[in-house]
Design a protein around this nucleic acid. Structure first.
Length: 415
DNA sequence: CGTCCACGTCTAC
DNA sequence: TAGACCTGGACGG
């Protein structure tokens, strides 16, 4: 599941499934989990979710009881509790019947229905975690998707930080500045702009302004000054209308959200839409190298000057670092987890074709048939704060405020 | 069967 | 900056 878009999709899923549902009793943890118990027991409570970067916060809110005093004496919750989740490599939420609990369901919330249903936090590898009465983890920066403006300012105002001495591909995984970016997103984002992954981050970022000139294509209230307008025109000319690196850190993840489904999840059927969306990560013909932390960086073309030299490196295992410097790379064997069995045939074709041509067009075709989050759901941007959410048509779409900045419906734009 | 790989942190030398 | 923390799918022998 787990980069920013998957966490955001998870929060949308919880809100959709739990809308109007009353939960009851204990919050149950699996035997094997090492995360803390959740000391929350309540006769009747509701669950809502919100995401920020690579965290999801569930809020358990007791439904008004007739006798609050009795409740608290009985050890039942009368106040809301937040639980903050991190998903590790494999976390997600799922609602099922009690009989169909997913394998590796590690935290469970029971509805008050008969028969009851269960909201599970499922996490195969158990790298995920939760914190009862938790807060957003300090040190993680503003969310690339839901707090774009402050994300952008946080980066542009801290470029002197030594963190930016590193190659851009490694800095993109630093959650202090790029809260929500993960391994596939860094590849996709740098690929779109043809930025070599191992270029010093500061070099890439220092030209960028705290203000985003791509925002508000047709500014309504704030007229651009002449100077700004010409700067913007110049930049757009350079980057071909797509926006700069920081803007793509916002818009590329939002593309994944708008694809719907579950995002990155090779096991599920709805993975095909996501796979078709990928242009670089794990794509046949692309190159890959282990970065200084042992994470596989997928890219095309020049790796850049800060490419790890020490052939060995990083990872737990001592594997070769440079897998293919010679152009079109065929993802190795076990590597091609995603393509499943047709891999070998496809590899041959791709290697011998001017690659990108075919791939991306094939991709786009498939991508266009990607599922929406839910039929009728709409990706909505808040113009005043540049927040973005997917909103369900079933939820009074034309009558709401931005959860983060409270701008009214008139300031929203439907994408 | 064994090896390698995976969407991410953490923490101990 | 190595490991540690985990499970399981793909692939090679």
């Amino acid at each position: 599941m787990p980069e920013g878009p998957e966490l955001h999709l998870a929060s949308l899923y919880v809100n959709k499934m739990c809308n109007g549902v009353v939960f009851t009793g204990l919050v149950k943890k699996s035997e094997v989990s090492k995360s803390p118990d959740v000391p929350f027991t309540c006769e009747a409570y509701r669950i809502t979710a919100i995401s920020r970067g690579k965290e999801v916060k569930l809020t358990l809110t007791p439904v008004k009881s007739d006798d609050v005093t009795w409740d608290s004496k009985a050890g039942l919750a009368d106040q809301p509790m937040d639980i903050v989740f991190r998903f590790g490599m494999s976390g997600y939420f799922r609602v099922t019947s009690e009989e169909e609990l997913p394998k590796h369901s590690h935290l469970r919330f029971y509805t008050k229905e008969t028969p009851c249903r269960v909201l599970s936090f499922v996490d195969t590898r158990r790298f995920g975690s939760w914190e009862p009465s938790g807060t957003w983890q300090p040190g993680r920066g503003p969310c690339i998707m839901t707090e774009y403006k402050s994300f952008r300012e946080n980066v542009t105002s801290h470029l002197s930080d030594r963190a930016f001495d590193r190659p851009i591909c490694e800095v993109l995984l630093n959650q202090k500045y790029f809260s929500g970016i993960g391994n596939y997103l860094r590849a996709e984002i740098l690929f779109r702009l043809s930025i070599p992954p191992f270029v010093p981050a500061r070099t890439v970022l220092e030209g960028l302004e705290s203000e985003d000139f791509w925002e508000n294509e047709k500014p309504v209230k704030n007229e651009l000054t002449d100077a700004k307008a010409s700067k913007r025109a110049k930049q757009k000319k350079l980057k071909g209308e797509t926006g700069d690196l920081l803007r793509l850190c916002h818009t590329v993840p939002l593309e994944v959200v708008s694809l719907g489904g579950k995002g990155y999840d090779p096991v599920k059927e709805d993975y095909s839409g996501f796979k078709a969306w990928l242009q670089c990560y794990y794509v046949d013909g692309m190159k890959s190298i282990r970065d200084h932390n042992g994470r596989t960086m997928w890219f095309k073309g020049d790796p850049g000057p800060m490419v790890p030299k020490s052939i060995q490196s990083a990872s737990t295992k001592k594997k070769k670092v440079v897998k293919q410097q010679t152009g079109t790379k065929t993802p190795k064997k076990g590597k091609d987890v995603h393509v499943k069995k047709k891999a070998s045939k496809r590899i041959k074709i791709d290697v011998n074709t001017p690659q990108h041509e075919n791939k991306s067009s094939a991709r786009r075709r498939k991508g266009s048939s990607a599922q929406p989050v839910d039929a009728g759901d709409i990706l909505v941007f808040c113009q005043s704060e540049t927040n973005a959410f997917v909103w369900s048509r079933n939820e009074r779409i034309f009558n709401f405020n931005c959860p983060l900045c409270s701008s009214s419906e008139t300031e929203w734009k439907i994408n």
